[in-house]
Each structure stands twice: as structure tokens, then as C-alpha cells.
């Protein structure tokens, strides 16, 4: 019965330790900036319009085809008296979060850094009663970035960390 005694002592030792429970809905773990939830569109606060020009790059690269993009002429373009340098701008944009597999490819292919993965808890807590509610439109995709509630992080693929010693030497 030594083995049984050993098992029971092991459980007793965990009985004595501090619980490891995270009180989840009350206490949220701090998310790292690399965290990936679902893609979001970013808002250009300087000109007060989306970064996205509706170039379809992400739509073409998406492996699960969860995006639908429509572009239009930018009414705010310089030639029309506005202050934006974007000739075309996003008109309508849908992402089906129920279909997205969070592979980060849309972020990587974007030429304008207009899309990023949501790295806040709102991206993770997306339960809805109807799966059709998971299809997000342009307003919903932009709102978080527009309100500044995103810890923006757009990775550069293949870029290594800079060696502080080497930087100092220069």
C-alpha cells in the first residue's frame, strides 16, 4: 500500500498549496500584445477616416474566405477639396467571425497597415445567440480602434529583435 499512501500524500500536498484558480469573469488575465483574437480595421485619427482603401488584398489572401470588401471613391480626397491622400476608400466591409480562423494572414498582406488582430478581451468574448450576429460590418469593425481601445500591434514578418548592445555600438 506504499504506492497508495504516496498518491494520497501527493494529493494532500496540493491540498496544502495555494489555489491556482483565476476568477475569470471577474478578473481578466492581462493579455500580451501579441495576442490574437479576430481582425479589426484601424482608424486613421489624423485624417479621421479608416486606413483601409478596400484593395481586396486581405480578401484574396484569406484562406477561409470570411471577408467581403467593397471600395468607393474617397469623397474626402484632395482633388475633391478634402484633406485625404487616399483616392479610394473602403465602402463596405464584412468579416464573418464565425468563419475566421485567426491565422493573421490578412494583417500580413495588408499594404496600408489598415487591419490588425484584436488583442483585447473584447475580441475573445464574442458569444452571441445567433451565429449570423458574428458577421461584423464596417461600423463594428472600426468602432474599437476609433475609440482608441486597442493596443495596436502590427507585426513585421521575419523581423528579428534588435540587439541592444549592437544598437549602442552604432
Amino acid at each position: 500500500m506504499n504506492g497508495i499512501a504516496r498518491s494520497m500524500l501527493t494529493t494532500l500536498s496540493t491540498f496544502m498549496r495555494k489555489p491556482v484558480t483565476r476568477d475569470y469573469p471577474v478578473v481578466h488575465k492581462e493579455l500580451p500584445k501579441t495576442d490574437r483574437a479576430f481582425p479589426l480595421l484601424l482608424w486613421d485619427h489624423e485624417i479621421d477616416e479608416p486606413f483601409c482603401t478596400g484593395c481586396h488584398a486581405c480578401e484574396r489572401a484569406c484562406p477561409v474566405e470570411c471577408m467581403t470588401v467593397l471600395m468607393k471613391d474617397n469623397p474626402n480626397h484632395k482633388s475633391l477639396g478634402g484633406d485625404s491622400s487616399r483616392r479610394k476608400i473602403i465602402d463596405k466591409f464584412w468579416i464573418d467571425y464565425g468563419r475566421c480562423m485567426r491565422c493573421n494572414i490578412c494583417v500580413e498582406v495588408c499594404n496600408f497597415e489598415a487591419i490588425a488582430m484584436n488583442n483585447t478581451w473584447t475580441g475573445h468574448e464574442t458569444s452571441v445567440y445567433d451565429r449570423r450576429d458574428l458577421t461584423m460590418d464596417l461600423q463594428q469593425l472600426l468602432s474599437q480602434s476609433r475609440a482608441g481601445k486597442i493596443n495596436e500591434w502590427v507585426p513585421v514578418i521575419g523581423q528579428a529583435n534588435e540587439d541592444p548592445a549592437a544598437v549602442k555600438a552604432e
Binding site: P32, T34, D35, R36, N104, G158
Partner: peptide, 23 residues
């Protein structure tokens, strides 16, 4: 999660190396 951004479906290794550097 800190390294690759996701807990199960990492999509972190890329042909040629890694998607981005570790923390």
C-alpha cells in the same frame, strides 16, 4: 500566447523561419 499570439492554433512557423521574433 506571449510568443505566438494564440494558445492552440499558432500559425507561427513560416517557411524560412518564424513569423516574428520572440519577446
Amino acid at each position: 500566447e506571449e510568443v505566438a499570439g494564440d494558445r492552440m492554433m499558432y500559425a507561427y512557423f513560416r517557411p524560412g523561419g518564424l513569423a516574428w521574433d520572440v519577446p
